[in-house]
Each structure stands twice: as structure tokens, then as C-alpha cells.
């Protein structure tokens, strides 16, 4: 019985055989942790508004503080543990954006402060800025034309 898999059959077989991600468990964790991080953001925003910051300035200040926390907990070597547990729950919030900046910068520190820290900082976050800004320029032009 010298039956051999073709490539297609093999891919299908492997797909069936491979252990699956526990999607329900992962989504629940992502929901809870992501939601909690947003509650922290809401709390900070409420707090600074109650201290007399204008609501329109509060958004920027809130993200600034959240980014600091994301960066700081990455430095303390705990953000990755959170990420291992929460997945997208800690990737999608702005703290995850800070994590994506700090983690490569830390990793490549031994390659120097310019080509290491300075350049590697953006290996993950760079594309976010590139696509975010480009999309906003497109959107601005469309908005201008349709206005």
C-alpha cells in the first residue's frame, strides 16, 4: 500500500491534524483584558477632566499617559507576560502600540543607540504610522472633494 500524499493532500492532512487555537478561551481573555485596559483609560480621562483639563485636550493627554504605562510595563518585563495571556487584548490598545516600540528598541540596544535602539524602534510601529497617516491623507482629500 505505497500510498503517498500529494502536496494538496498533505496540506489538508496537516491542517486537520494540527492542534487548533482555543478561540473561545482566547477571545474571552482578549475581551476582558482589552476592556479593562479601556476602563483604565476612561478612569484617567475622567480624572484629568475633573482636575480641570478641557475635555478636547483630555484625549491626547490620556493616550500620552497610557503610552507611558505601556512602555513602562514593557521595561519591567511584564507586558509580554500580559500579551501571552491576553493576545489581542493587550496588542490592540494603545499600550500595545507602545509595547511594539519599546520591545525591539530594548532588544537591539546591544547593537548601539543609533542603528540599534533608534532604527529598530519602528520595525513594528513604523508600518502603523505609515498606513495611519497615509490613510488619513487619503481620507482628508476625499473629505475635501466631497464636502
Amino acid at each position: 500500500m505505497q500510498k503517498m500524499y500529494t502536496k494538496q493532500e498533505y496540506l489538508k492532512y496537516v491542517e486537520e491534524k494540527s492542534p487548533k487555537s482555543k478561540v473561545l478561551r482566547n477571545v474571552t481573555r482578549a475581551f476582558v483584558i482589552g476592556g479593562l485596559i479601556c476602563i483604565v483609560g476612561q478612569f484617567i480621562s475622567n480624572l484629568i477632566i475633573s482636575k480641570g483639563v478641557k475635555p478636547e485636550d483630555a484625549a491626547g493627554l490620556t493616550s500620552l499617559i497610557m503610552i507611558f504605562f505601556g512602555a513602562f510595563f514593557t521595561g519591567l518585563n511584564v507586558y509580554d507576560e500580559l500579551g501571552r495571556f491576553a493576545g489581542a487584548g493587550s496588542i490592540v490598545p494603545i499600550t500595545g502600540f507602545a509595547n511594539s516600540i519599546v520591545s525591539p528598541a530594548m532588544e537591539y540596544k546591544r547593537e548601539g543607540f543609533v542603528v540599534g535602539v533608534g532604527a529598530r524602534m519602528f520595525i513594528i510601529a513604523g508600518p502603523v504610522i505609515v498606513y495611519g497617516i497615509s490613510a488619513s491623507v487619503f481620507a482628508g482629500i476625499l473629505y475635501f472633494l466631497l464636502k
Binding site: A30, C38, I39, A86, A88, P127
Partner: peptide, 30 residues
């Protein structure tokens, strides 16, 4: 805040588990 934030993160998680998109691509997409 909890529910909207949770739903957005869950959407990201479903993308990770179902499509194997890398974190960088998830962030760009969002």
C-alpha cells in the same frame, strides 16, 4: 468603555486565531 474596548480587542483576537495575521498587520489594519 469595557464593552466597546472588549469587542474591538475580541475582533483582533479572532483575526489572530483564524488568519494567523502577525501583530504588526493587526495594528496596521486597526
Amino acid at each position: 468603555a469595557f464593552i466597546v474596548g472588549g469587542v474591538l480587542c475580541s475582533a483582533g483576537q479572532i483575526l489572530i486565531d483564524r488568519t494567523r495575521l502577525t501583530p504588526a498587520k493587526i495594528l496596521v489594519l486597526f
